[in-house]
Design a protein around this nucleic acid. Structure first.
Length: 922
RNA sequence: GCAGGAAUGGUGGAAUGGUAGACACGAAGGACUUAAAAUCCUUUGGCCCUUACCGGCUGUGUGGGUUCGAGUCCCACUUCCUGUACCA
């Protein structure tokens, strides 16, 4: 009987469906294991061979754990809200509800063909009202809480109101957008509107003015990467900087915990490091510089308190509130001109150009340590969003300040012994201080680190400022002027105050609209929805939530997907707790993986989840890149020249569909038929063939390099696809897709099939021979270890070796086949299921027991000899079965010289092979 | 600039500090076949020696170091990838 993958795979997939094989329930008392994949965005292009890479790896792991006796939760769903569906809707008028549902159906069909062990009864879709009611619910909870820094957790906003009523803002230590001070009496005297405005500064989900890229023509906010040189990438419409009222999440309040809890996670160092950088903790001091002739001070943040004696000017961010306050009347025109210039640049442009620009305000600050007056400037190299939006400039020891000082010819005072600042600044935090002595503080001769500590202490004692830790992590902007997302459960009352809908109004369903464009008044598309108001007639929020909203807590919903009372019920949460293994791309390092951790910590503070971190172990699978092919058109002709000859012509490379190319040789007839403009194409061939060039790029439809897993499954089978994707190399590594090796993997499965067939025919009921036992147990040991280490390519290789060995020893042993069936079940579940039933077992191989290996089976085939050594020590030499006693002894004795360093140690075992010592075991 | 990672045959890639190149692809040769496909066998890092598959030398980006022994550990450098970037 031949290996017929089509028949086997469709039969067992049907069996799994019929028997609900992958359905899982919480079983208190049984060890749980939660394996999760980052759920996909169902794009119109369908899955390509890169998508399943991580899913296959996690599926193998999930099946392995299940065979080891764990109760494994392995769900799947769809991150269904997103921009592409909306763009498509705008272009075609098709409802995103419909296109998304179609795409999901297609994804499901493709996923099913690969034989994953997902429990589909737990599927979630972020665009499903029964799911997103919990996204809206979480938002409401965040709106209703603030972050108390003394309790170091989120507390109900009512508690804050109580304190305000009793004591005003005094003693309240909370994460806040802007410090405000008021007494209890003042609070009580405030209007409702005023109180709400104050509370908005504290809420974890809050509305605030934020700087955005606004494109008038498109009627929407654009991300920085959607803007280039002041115009929108799409359409080329002008874009300006604009302050807009946006919903935000106070993620920054959790920065210290997000940083601290990173340590205990089993994530890759690089990913943890990326998150640490993103959170960006820096310790420093906040200092006040009095403004000359005025009764207020400029607050700045610095990590280099030691360099105060070298401050020769101050710089404000253009958006800083200080600018208006400090601009002298005679400088007003110049400053305003500069602000206008900056306004038309995007933040990104400001960063890329790096052209030094700025303007003097006409005001001076007083250096609190020297009493000297220093000019205050405005420049866009200072960011409004970090620290206080103002800096003290130390040109000798900061490269940005240095460039600015050189450009505007401001003084530069070196503060570190031996630092040459004639050509560039000396930024390193090392060396001995000089020129740093003033009234009350002398830093001269101190090391930089000592000087920083001493200065911090000084400014604290003298009341010049305070020690402060800053974080780079900013609050997340949570509004989008788009249609295809979760509506906010928010309305605006007659005073314009943002209010929550009652919880029983959830889910607030996304209404139908007739067009997905902004309204003529420039409102988001929801402005077109009929009756988009509360029963009382108050208008509902028109923005929707961003993509990361729905993906922030989906892992919790899988635990208890049909619970109508809660996102996750306490029993389900107590049992499943957290994700033991999370597999997905590293591109989410600073997005989803921060937001999810934040979301989880918030729910943890509320006592709704038991674990403070959602993802215990994380594996980032590499990307599978595409291999694009190119043809070379000679400029202004319809003649194409083969890759090797293109150097002789002036050519334009054009991507061609890889389906028309076989081993880089173009099918010229197919190419002529591909596009009307190529019908008359002429070719200049080499050796009678047209050879294409190639490049490794992202796999994408627009690059014509997409390989569809369905085609591979159809031709070779799902088991081959699964094994091959694992065999390509380490899961974590990115690699281009190439089909060259796939025959080898398919050949292996056919060999395994034949080996099994012969074993069944032989009807051999004897036990394994020592040789068979050795092969099989070596395999158990290797595969068990490799799966645990996520090293699937080497396990596939181990299977190949074992099958080759058993084939060449003409093994027909059923016990050996039984063990191999269980071992290969996670990798190639269809063929394993087939074997399992042919071996006469009941039930699915999914529930078979993972084999234990027998160390003695491995040692048995190895000879051990006692050998005397140095006339004192006795130890054993372990050698392959083939080596003779004399040979081994001789080698061991010859190695005596090399082993002399062992003189005062007692070796237990020296492992040798003919020719040299391999290992000395102490 | 900063951070993290990587560099091994024609290719993808293996190697708890212990026979480098597992396994696979590709290539070459052979068997079977009218032929092809499929399958099977042999060879396959480089160089050298030999009638004799015996043997030798060399070899994991470069230069040093630690070690009886280094692809692996340490230092410096080169190149590439990935992330991030005026964060004071």
């Amino acid at each position: 009987m031949d290996y017929n993958h089509r028949e086997i795979e469709s039969r067992w997939q049907q069996y799994w469906r019929d028997h609900d094989t992958y359905k899982v329930e919480a079983k208190p008392g049984k060890r749980k294991f939660y394996v999760l994949d980052m759920f996909p965005y169902p794009s119109g292009a369908g899955l390509h061979v890169g998508h399943p890479l991580g899913y296959i790896a996690s599926d193998i792991y999930a099946r392995f754990k299940r065979q080891q006796g764990f109760n494994v939760l392995h769900p799947m769903g769809y991150d269904a809200y997103g921009l592409p569906a909306e763009q498509y809707a705008i272009q075609t008028g098709q409802a995103p509800q419909k296109t998304t549902a179609d795409n999901i159906a297609r994804y499901r069909e493709q996923l099913d063909k690969i034989g994953f062990s997902f429990d589909w009864s737990r599927e979630v879709r972020t665009c499903d009202p029964e799911y997103y009611r919990w996204t809206q619910w979480a938002f409401m909870k965040m709106f209703g809480h603030y972050y108390d820094l003394d309790a170091d957790k989120a507390l109900p906003i009512d508690r804050l109101v109580e304190r305000f009523e009793k004591e005003g803002s005094k003693g309240v230590n909370a994460a806040v957008s802007k410090e405000v001070e008021f007494t209890a009496d003042e609070w009580r005297a405030m209007s409702r509107r005023e109180k709400e405005d104050i509370l908005m500064l504290y809420r974890l989900a809050y509305r605030a003015e934020t700087m955005v890229n606004w494109c008038e023509a498109l009627g929407t906010v654009l991300a920085n990467d959607e803007v280039s040189e002041g115009v929108s990438v799409r359409g080329g419409y002008p874009v300006e900087q604009k302050v807009m009222r946006q919903w935000c999440l106070r993620v920054s309040a959790y920065a210290p915990r997000l940083l601290a809890d990173l340590d205990a996670l089993e994530w890759s160092d690089s990913l943890k490091e990326t998150q640490r950088n993103w959170i960006g903790r820096s310790e420093g001091a906040e200092m006040r510089f009095p403004v000359a002739g005025r009764d207020f001070s400029l607050e700045i943040f610095t990590t280099r308190a030691d360099t105060v004696f070298g401050v020769t000017f101050m710089v404000l961010a253009p958006e800083s509130e200080y600018v208006a306050m400090l601009t002298a009347p005679d400088r007003k025109e110049a400053v305003e001109a500069y602000l206008e210039e900056v306004k038309h640049k995007t933040e990104r442009e400001r960063q890329i150009e790096k052209k030094v620009s700025g303007v003097f305000t006409g005001s001076y600050a007083v250096n609190p340590l020297t009493g000297k007056e220093i000019p205050i400037w405005v420049s866009d190299y200072v960011l409004a969003g970090y620290g206080t939006g103002a800096i003290m400039a130390v040109p000798a020891h900061d490269s940005r300040d240095y460039a600015f000082a050189r450009h505007f010819d401001l003084p530069i005072i070196p503060l570190i012994e031996g630092a040459d600042v004639s050509g560039e600044s000396f930024d390193a935090k090392e060396g001995r201080m000089i020129n740093s002595c003033g009234p009350g503080l002398d830093l001269n001769g101190l090391e930089v680190k000592e000087a920083i500590a001493k200065t911090k202490k000084f400014i604290k004692e003298k009341g010049l400022g305070r020690v402060k830790t800053n974080y780079r992590l900013r609050d997340a902007i949570f509004s989008r002027q788009r249609y295809w997302g979760e509506p906010f459960p928010v309305y605006y009352d007659s005073e314009g105050v943002a209010c929550l809908l009652p919880e029983n109004a959830l889910p607030l369903e996304l209404p139908k609209v007739d067009s997905y464009l902004p309204t003529s008044k420039g409102e988001p598309p929801l402005g077109r929805a009929e009756n988009w108001k509360t029963p009382e007639g108050f208008p509902l929020e028109l923005c929707t939530m961003p993509g990361f909203a729905g993906s922030s807590a989906y892992y919790l919903r899988y635990m208890d997907p049909h619970n109508p009372e809660a996102l996750v019920g306490p029993e389900a949460d107590e049992y499943w707790r957290d994700v033991d293994l999370y597999v997905g791309g590293a591109e989410h390092a600073t997005g989803h993986l921060i937001y999810s951790r934040f979301w989880n910590k918030f729910l943890y503070d509320l006592g709704l989840v038991v674990e403070k971190e959602p993802f215990r172990k994380l594996v980032n699978q590499g990307m599978i890149q595409g291999r694009s092919n190119f043809v070379y058109r000679i400029k202004d002709t319809n003649t194409f020249v083969s890759h090797g000859l293109k150097g002789d012509y002036d050519v334009t490379p054009i991507r061609v569909d890889i389906n028309m190319v076989d081993a880089d040789v173009l099918d010229t007839d197919a190419f002529r038929k591909w596009r009307p403009e190529f019908v008359d194409a002429e070719f200049i061939l080499e050796d009678g063939r047209y050879v294409c060039g190639y490049a490794v790029e992202k796999m994408s439809k627009s690059m014509f390099n997409v390989v569809n897993p369905d085609d591979i499954v159809e031709r070779y089978g799902a088991d081959t696809l699964r094994l091959y994707e694992m065999f390509l190399g380490p899961v974590e590594q990115s690699k281009p897709w190439d089909t060259n090796g796939i025959d080898g993997v398919n050949r292996f499965l056919r060999k395994l099939w034949n080996l099994f067939d012969r074993a069944m025919e032989a009807d051999n009921t004897a036990g394994m021979t020592p040789e068979e036992k050795k092969v099989v147990h070596k395999l158990i040991k290797k595969v068990t270890g490799d799966i645990a280490n996520f090293s699937f390519n080497t396990s596939v290789a181990a299977f190949m070796i074992a099958v080759n060995d058993l084939t060449s020893m003409k093994s027909t042993n059923r016990e050996a086949m039984d063990i191999i069936t269980r071992l290969i079940a996670p990798f190639a579940p269809h063929i394993a299921e087939e074997f399992w039933h042919r071996l006469g077992h009941e039930g699915s191989v999914v529930d078979s027991e993972w084999p234990e290996y027998d160390e003695s089976a491995l040692v048995e085939a190895t000879v051990k000899y006692p050998v005397s050594f140095n006339g004192k020590t006795r130890y054993t030499v372990e050698a392959p079965a083939g080596a003779s006693k004399e040979e081994v002894e001789k080698i061991a004795l010859e190695a005596e010289g090399a082993a002399k360093w062992l003189a005062d140690k007692t070796p237990r075992k020296v492992i040798v092979v003919p020719g040299r010592i391999v290992n000395v075991v102490l």
